[in-house]
Simulated scan of single mutants.
Amino acid sequence: MTDFAPWAWALLGVAAVIAGLGKTAVPGASTVSVVILASILPARTSTAAMLLLFIVGDAFALIAYRRHAHWPTLLRLAPAVIAGLLAGFAFLALGDDDIVRRTIGVILLVMIAITLWRRRRSSEPASGLLPAAGYGTLAGFTTMVANAGGPVMSMYFLATRTPVQVFLGTAAWFFAIVNLMKVPMLAGLGLITPEVLLMDLILAPLVVVGALTGMRVAKRMPQQLFDRLVIVLTIAGAVYLLF
Rank of each mutant, 00 (worst) to 15 (best):
A211R: 01
G84Y: 03
L52D: 04
S46D: 04
T193R: 12
A69S: 12
P222E: 13
D97L: 11
V152P: 00
L201P: 05
G210E: 03
Y135G: 05
P151K: 04
R228N: 15
L94R: 14
V232G: 12
W173S: 06
V217M: 15
A83P: 01
R228A: 15
R67T: 10
A236K: 01
P6M: 11
G237H: 05
V56G: 05
I202E: 07
V26A: 12
L109Y: 03
L74K: 04
I82A: 09
L229S: 06
A5T: 13
I18A: 09
G150C: 03
L191F: 09
Q165M: 14
I40E: 05
L21P: 04
D227M: 09
K182C: 08
A148G: 10
L77S: 08
R121E: 08
R102I: 05
L108A: 03
N179T: 04
G128W: 02
A87D: 02
A93G: 09
R216E: 10
I235D: 02
Q224G: 10
N147I: 00
A38I: 00
R119W: 04
R216A: 13
G149Y: 02
G84Q: 06
V32K: 01
L201T: 15
L109A: 06
V81H: 00
L37I: 08
L37C: 13
L129S: 14
E124W: 00
F141I: 11
K219V: 14
A187V: 03
I99P: 00
V106M: 12
T234C: 11
L52F: 07
I112Y: 00
A80V: 10
G57R: 04
Q224P: 03
T73L: 14
